[in-house]
Amino acid sequence: MTFDRRKFLLDTGKLLVLSASASVAWEAIVAGKPETAPNYTMTDHWWGMAIDVDKCIGCGSCVRACKAENNVPLDPMYFRTWVEQYRVNPDDMDHPTVESPNGGYDGFPFKGAPDSDPKAKHFFVPKLCNHCADSPCTQVCPVGATFISPDGVVLIDKDYCLACRYCVQACPYGCRFIDPRTMTADKCTLCYQRITKGLTTACCENCPTGARRLGDLKNPNDPIQQFLLDHHVVVLKPQMATGAKVYYNDLDGSVR
């Protein structure tokens, strides 16, 4: 089973940015009624993501693409997605050495000889909002400014958020921050402006190895279904019971 995103996109036949049908959809969306968009019905979808840890090369393309697509502040403490670099010593498996310089935005240049550290295992882990089905962040929002959309994406209404920051505290994965420009909470939208038009997210579009793949868990023909069948996947912090929908293949137990 291979993941051919290009084929997937072509098959859906809805990606042509400038096509007539898309522009009709666009107008419907601008009017604030996405349900009337001719080619997107929210209740037909339930979005998630599959991440193949073995394929991540730590190039940081997803981080850069995310910031560019979504106008995320470039400071090193605001990320909708970031990459962590793990070094696990077999003598102390529970306490890995983790680094994420600038969230991986500039990649992870390695200083020293590539074979200089043979006594440890090394890997990268991309992180993003898990778009939890039972999300603790939306649970605590006092006013209804953050919510799970009918298609399973955890979103923020930036015109309604009062920045009490309770959601930032409630996220077990550290996926939320306060955007210093708007003074509202901010997080991954799963590129909602893209996926509602049949495109994939900026991070998946720009992952050179296909380590990250957007998937529609309601679509039986989506390749993610087969991926979940073929691999032993796990979500982050399963003990939190958040209903996370970002599935990691071959994730090391030391990752939190």
Binding site: K33, N70, L155, Y192, R194
Partner: peptide
């Protein structure tokens, strides 16, 4: 929902 979906790409 519509406002977020119509953010610029």
């Amino acid at each position: 929902l519509g406002e977020i979906a119509s953010l610029p790409m």
